[in-house]
Computed example of a mutant assay.
Amino acid sequence: MDYITSERLIPKDDRKKIHEYLFREGVLVAKKDFNLPKHSDIDTKNLYVIKALQSLDSRGFVKTQFSWQYYYYTLTPEGLDYLREWLHLPAEVVPATHIKQQRSHAPPRGMMGGEEQRGERRGPRAPREGGYRRREEGKEGGAPGEFAPSFRGGFGRGRGTAPQE
């Protein structure tokens, strides 16, 4: 008996749109709504997108992550090769997620002289004498010897019982 996959039930032009988008972007997001008439990014039914990518996932061509009623599909290296062959694309063409972004040669703000500019505006910092969280010479941290906390029972901000003496 001939096994019919869900991919054969999807019209070829719709399958091509899905595969082209996935190859171009490298990732695809689909809402888990099988009755949605149109996918948000591709001009085809949302059901076709989910089922086509479910087929690719079962063959190991995409990795699927499901969160908050959305499917997140990521193209695997095997899927990249498969789609390149299926779409008849040369090896030089790669998805957008595989292209490294060009960084500008200008250093980020705050580096390369940022301290001098800030120091000129605000002026130098005054040293703290006996200020916030300064330790005295020879003193160890901790509570003083006469510190004796008392616990009065009760919960939260409610009224507790009178302290016992």
Rank of each mutant, 00 (worst) to 15 (best):
P37Y: 08
T44I: 03
H39S: 07
D57M: 02
L89M: 08
H98I: 00
E92F: 04
Y73P: 00
G113A: 05
G156P: 10
F155I: 15
K63L: 06
R8Y: 15
T74Y: 08
K32E: 06
N35M: 12
G158V: 06
S6D: 03
H88P: 01
R122K: 09
F23S: 07
K12Q: 15
F66L: 03
E146H: 15
A162D: 03
R84F: 00
D41A: 05
V94G: 05
V93R: 07
A148K: 13
E120N: 14
Y82E: 05
A52G: 07
R125Y: 07
A148C: 10
P108W: 04
D33N: 14
L47E: 13
L87A: 08
G138D: 10
R109L: 13
N35Y: 11
G113T: 08
L53G: 02
T97P: 00
E78P: 05
T74S: 07
A126V: 13
T64S: 01
G156M: 09
R157S: 15
R121Q: 12
T76C: 00
E146L: 09
T44W: 01
F147A: 08
R15H: 05
E7H: 12
A106W: 11
N35G: 04
E140H: 06
L89D: 12
R118C: 07
V27I: 10
A148N: 14
D13Q: 04
L87S: 07
Q102Y: 07
G141Q: 12
L9F: 12
R15L: 15
R134G: 10
T97A: 01
F61I: 11
H19N: 11
T97L: 03
F66K: 13
T161L: 09
P90F: 02
L83M: 10
E85S: 14
T5I: 05
V93F: 02
P107Y: 10
H98D: 01
G110S: 05
L36F: 11
G113C: 06
G130L: 02
L80Q: 15
M112H: 12
Q69E: 12
R84I: 02
V49K: 02
D33E: 10
S150P: 08
R133E: 01
F147T: 12
V27D: 08
